[in-house]
């Protein structure tokens, strides 16, 4: 029988602890609010990026659809754009965009192959993002947002059932 691998534990000296100090009587929410305000300064730039990405997503989707899902470069571009949107939109008040982007990325990542059926599912995600962008749906989108996400979830569930 093979020997059990040796396990060595190393105590963490935690030098950061010596570099920070607790600010008594100051609500941490003030600090967090200050940081949120700092990020909010980037919201104008995000709106521009969002609009540009929607156009680029449409272009990548068209190329992918025309190739029947085989154009790997279009798929890579599509995923990069979706991945960027899911990672950024929620920070600027568009959590619905992040959710739709996340759903599309997971669909790509967990699909073994991309063909006509998969392209159809991705197209629905891109259409949803276009609709959110056009209508400037912020927050969770209320009933419209729930309907959009519910629709995408059903499509993926149906797709999974057929596999």
């Amino acid at each position: 029988m093979a020997d059990k691998p040796k396990v060595e534990f190393i105590d963490n000296p935690n030098p950061i602890r010596r570099k920070v100090r607790v600010e008594q009587g100051i609500d941490p929410q003030n600090l967090i609010k200050r940081a949120d305000n700092q990020v909010a300064k980037l919201s104008g730039e995000f709106e521009e990026i969002f609009a540009e990405n929607i156009v680029a997503l449409g272009d990548a989707m068209t190329s992918l659809r025309q190739s029947g899902g085989t154009d790997e470069e279009s798929l890579r571009r599509l995923r990069v754009l979706l991945h960027d949107l899911r990672g950024q939109a929620g920070t600027f008040g568009y959590p619905l965009v992040s959710k739709v982007g996340d759903s599309a990325c997971k669909f790509i990542d967990l699909s073994e192959t991309i063909g006509g059926t998969e392209v159809g599912v991705l197209n629905m995600h891109v259409d949803a993002l276009k609709a959110i962008s056009q209508a400037k749906i912020k927050g969770d989108g209320g009933p419209i947002g729930a309907e959009l996400m519910g629709g995408l979830r059903k499509v993926i569930q149906k797709y999974n059932e057929k596999r």
């Binding site: 600090l31 700092q38 980037l42």
Partner: peptide, 15 residues
């Protein structure tokens, strides 16, 4: 990603 880097830097500096 340049913009994502800006987001992270702004949050960290804001903290």
């Amino acid at each position: 990603n340049r913009f994502m880097r800006s987001i992270l830097v702004n949050v960290i500096k804001g903290l």
